Each structure stands twice: as structure tokens, then as C-alpha cells.
Amino acid sequence: MRNLIVALILVGACLHALPSQAQQQDRGERIRALRVAYITDKLQLTPEESEKFWPVYNQYEAEQKRIRQKYKADLDLSIMKDEDVERSITDRFEMEEQIIKLKRDYFQRMKSFIAVRKIAQLQRSEQEFNRELLKRIQEARFKK
């Protein structure tokens, strides 16, 4: 619990506006480190579990990002033809199917080295971290 509080304080402290690209990259790395600490704490991963979990999780995130980027499109529905809109919808279904398959594959891999209960808690922990991060960003913007 103490690690969680420290991580949340650090999230707030690191979210001030950073103008340069190098500083933005540094901020992204700090946020990733805070996410690791937060999820590790929430899942109560042992050092042995962490050693196995994080490389697999990072690979999972990279593959998920690759799938999402493959289907990423700037959509302005007001100027698109109906067949383009339909294709966009079917592409979205295909992307979601690929992500579901990816989640199933990684669930099978992860359950070999961490408890199923911890895997179930993972998504909730990711959502909680993201909510807290957004909250801190909004608070930092209002303080300016």
C-alpha cells in the first residue's frame, strides 16, 4: 500500500508541462515506471513473478499497439463515402477480433507463471492507473 501511495504522489509530481520532445519522452518513461510499480503493487507480484511477468506483459503491449496502429485511421464521417464507412466498421471488428485473440494467447502464457486471480486483477489495475493518471493530468492543467 505504501508503494501505491508513493507511486501516485510521483505521478502527480511528474505531470507538469514539458515542452521538448526529449522531456516528453522522459515523462513517458517515468509514467511507464510508475505504471510498473503500481501494477506490481496491486497484483502483489513476487520478485520471481515480476521477473517473468514484465517481459511478457511488455511484449503483449507492443503487439497490441502494433495491431491498433495497423487499423488506425483518421475518420471524418461527414466526408466519407458509405462504402468507406462500412469498410472502417468491418476493419474495427477485425482489429477487435485480433486483440481478443492476443488477450487469449497471453492469458494462456501468463497463467503458467502467475495466479489466474492476478491476471484477472490486471485489467482492473490498468484501468485504475489510467484513471488516476488522467485525474492528475487534469488537476495539473487546472493549476496553471
Rank of each mutant, 00 (worst) to 15 (best):
R35D: 03
R35P: 03
R35G: 01
R35N: 02
R35S: 03
V36S: 01
A37N: 12
Y38Q: 06
Y38N: 02
I39N: 12
I39W: 12
I39H: 11
I39F: 12
T40V: 09
T40F: 05
D41V: 03
D41N: 05
D41W: 02
K42G: 09
L43R: 02
L43D: 02
L43G: 03
Q44Y: 09
Q44S: 15
Q44G: 13
Q44H: 14
Q44E: 15
L45W: 01
T46V: 06
P47Q: 07
P47I: 11
P47V: 07
P47F: 05
E48S: 10
E49Q: 15
E49M: 15
S50Q: 12
E51W: 08
E51K: 13
E51N: 13
K52N: 11
K52V: 12
K52S: 15
F53T: 07
F53Q: 08
F53A: 08
W54E: 08
W54H: 11
W54A: 10
P55A: 12
P55M: 13
P55H: 13
P55G: 04
P55N: 10
P55S: 09
V56M: 13
V56G: 14
V56H: 10
V56C: 12
N58R: 13
Q59D: 14
Q59G: 05
Q59E: 15
Q59R: 10
Y60A: 05
Y60K: 14
Y60F: 13
E61S: 10
E61W: 06
A62Y: 05
A62Q: 15
A62D: 14
A62G: 06
E63C: 05
E63W: 01
E63Q: 14
Q64T: 01
Q64I: 03
K65V: 00
K65M: 02
K65Q: 14
R66C: 07
I67T: 06
I67N: 07
Q69K: 00
Q69W: 00
Q69I: 01
Q69A: 09
K70G: 02
K70H: 04
K70P: 00
K70L: 00
Y71N: 00
Y71Q: 00
A73N: 01
A73K: 04
A73W: 00
